[in-house]
Lab assay of single mutants.
Amino acid sequence: VSVELPAPSSWKKLFYPNKVGSVKKTEVVFVAPTGEEISNRKQLEQYLKSHPGNPAIAEFDWTTSG
């Protein structure tokens, strides 16, 4: 189950709350306009370098507050 949070234009930000008793931590995933899922800052940096014209990296908020 995921919750969609505010994201930069043409992107989606999905929040996957951890299940009770789960060892997996809460996860935030950005979905690029191409449909590619980005789950960490390093991936995001690589994606933005190879896909010019996207929002600046500073516009991506990895917190769950939206």
Score class of each variant (00 low, 15 high):
residue 1 V to K: 10
residue 1 V to L: 13
residue 1 V to T: 11
residue 1 V to M: 12
residue 1 V to G: 11
residue 1 V to F: 12
residue 2 S to H: 11
residue 2 S to V: 15
residue 2 S to E: 08
residue 2 S to W: 14
residue 2 S to Q: 09
residue 2 S to I: 14
residue 2 S to K: 09
residue 3 V to T: 08
residue 3 V to Y: 11
residue 3 V to N: 07
residue 3 V to S: 07
residue 3 V to I: 14
residue 3 V to A: 06
residue 4 E to K: 07
residue 4 E to M: 10
residue 4 E to W: 09
residue 5 L to C: 09
residue 5 L to E: 05
residue 5 L to T: 05
residue 5 L to I: 05
residue 5 L to V: 06
residue 6 P to W: 09
residue 6 P to N: 07
residue 6 P to K: 08
residue 6 P to H: 08
residue 7 A to W: 05
residue 7 A to K: 04
residue 8 P to Y: 04
residue 8 P to R: 04
residue 8 P to E: 04
residue 8 P to G: 05
residue 9 S to M: 12
residue 9 S to A: 14
residue 10 S to C: 15
residue 10 S to I: 05
residue 10 S to W: 08
residue 11 W to K: 02
residue 11 W to P: 01
residue 11 W to S: 01
residue 11 W to C: 03
residue 12 K to T: 09
residue 12 K to R: 15
residue 12 K to M: 07
residue 12 K to H: 08
residue 13 K to A: 03
residue 13 K to I: 04
residue 14 L to Q: 04
residue 14 L to G: 02
residue 14 L to N: 03
residue 14 L to I: 10
residue 15 F to P: 02
residue 15 F to G: 04
residue 15 F to N: 05
residue 16 Y to F: 13
residue 17 P to V: 15
residue 17 P to T: 15
residue 17 P to F: 15
residue 17 P to S: 12
residue 18 N to Q: 11
residue 19 K to P: 12
residue 19 K to G: 14
residue 19 K to D: 08
residue 20 V to E: 12
residue 20 V to C: 13
residue 20 V to Q: 11
residue 20 V to G: 11
residue 21 G to M: 07
residue 21 G to Y: 03
residue 22 S to Q: 10
residue 22 S to H: 10
residue 22 S to M: 09
residue 24 K to N: 15
residue 24 K to M: 15
residue 25 K to H: 14
residue 25 K to E: 13
residue 26 T to E: 13
residue 26 T to Y: 15
residue 26 T to C: 15
residue 26 T to I: 12
residue 26 T to S: 13
residue 26 T to K: 10
residue 27 E to G: 15
residue 27 E to W: 15
residue 28 V to H: 01
residue 28 V to N: 00
residue 28 V to A: 04
residue 28 V to G: 01
residue 29 V to N: 03
residue 29 V to R: 08
residue 29 V to K: 07
residue 29 V to S: 05
residue 29 V to G: 02
residue 29 V to D: 00
residue 30 F to S: 00
residue 31 V to L: 10
residue 31 V to H: 04
residue 32 A to V: 01
residue 32 A to K: 00
residue 32 A to D: 00
residue 33 P to Q: 02
residue 33 P to A: 03
residue 34 T to V: 00
residue 34 T to N: 07
residue 34 T to F: 02
residue 34 T to Q: 02
residue 35 G to P: 00
residue 35 G to R: 03
residue 35 G to Q: 02
residue 35 G to L: 03
residue 36 E to N: 03
residue 36 E to V: 07
residue 36 E to F: 04
residue 36 E to C: 03
residue 38 I to T: 00
residue 38 I to M: 05
residue 39 S to M: 12
residue 40 N to D: 12
residue 40 N to V: 03
residue 40 N to Y: 05
residue 41 R to S: 10
residue 41 R to A: 10
residue 41 R to F: 13
residue 41 R to I: 13
residue 41 R to G: 08
residue 41 R to P: 14
residue 42 K to M: 13
residue 43 Q to L: 07
residue 43 Q to G: 06
residue 43 Q to N: 06
residue 43 Q to C: 07
residue 43 Q to E: 13
residue 44 L to H: 00
residue 44 L to W: 01
residue 45 E to Y: 13
residue 45 E to N: 08
residue 45 E to I: 12
residue 45 E to K: 11
residue 46 Q to V: 10
residue 46 Q to C: 08
residue 46 Q to P: 01
residue 46 Q to S: 10
residue 46 Q to W: 10
residue 47 Y to R: 00
residue 47 Y to H: 02
residue 48 L to D: 00
residue 48 L to T: 01
residue 49 K to L: 14
residue 49 K to Y: 11
residue 49 K to Q: 12
residue 49 K to M: 13
residue 50 S to K: 10
residue 50 S to T: 13
residue 50 S to F: 09
residue 50 S to C: 08
residue 50 S to A: 11
residue 51 H to L: 02
residue 51 H to A: 03
residue 51 H to W: 04
residue 51 H to D: 01
residue 52 P to V: 05
residue 52 P to G: 05
residue 52 P to M: 05
residue 53 G to W: 05
residue 53 G to K: 06
residue 53 G to E: 07
residue 53 G to T: 05
residue 53 G to S: 06
residue 54 N to H: 06
residue 55 P to R: 03
residue 55 P to E: 03
residue 56 A to E: 11
residue 56 A to V: 08
residue 56 A to W: 05
residue 56 A to H: 13
residue 56 A to N: 14
residue 56 A to Y: 06
residue 56 A to P: 15
residue 57 I to T: 05
residue 57 I to K: 05
residue 57 I to N: 04
residue 57 I to L: 12
residue 58 A to Q: 13
residue 58 A to D: 14
residue 59 E to G: 04
residue 60 F to R: 01
residue 60 F to G: 01
residue 60 F to D: 01
residue 61 D to W: 04
residue 62 W to T: 02
residue 62 W to E: 01
residue 62 W to N: 02
residue 63 T to N: 10
residue 64 T to E: 07
residue 64 T to G: 09
residue 64 T to L: 12
residue 64 T to W: 14
residue 64 T to M: 09
residue 64 T to A: 13
residue 65 S to H: 11
residue 65 S to N: 13
residue 66 G to N: 11
residue 66 G to A: 12
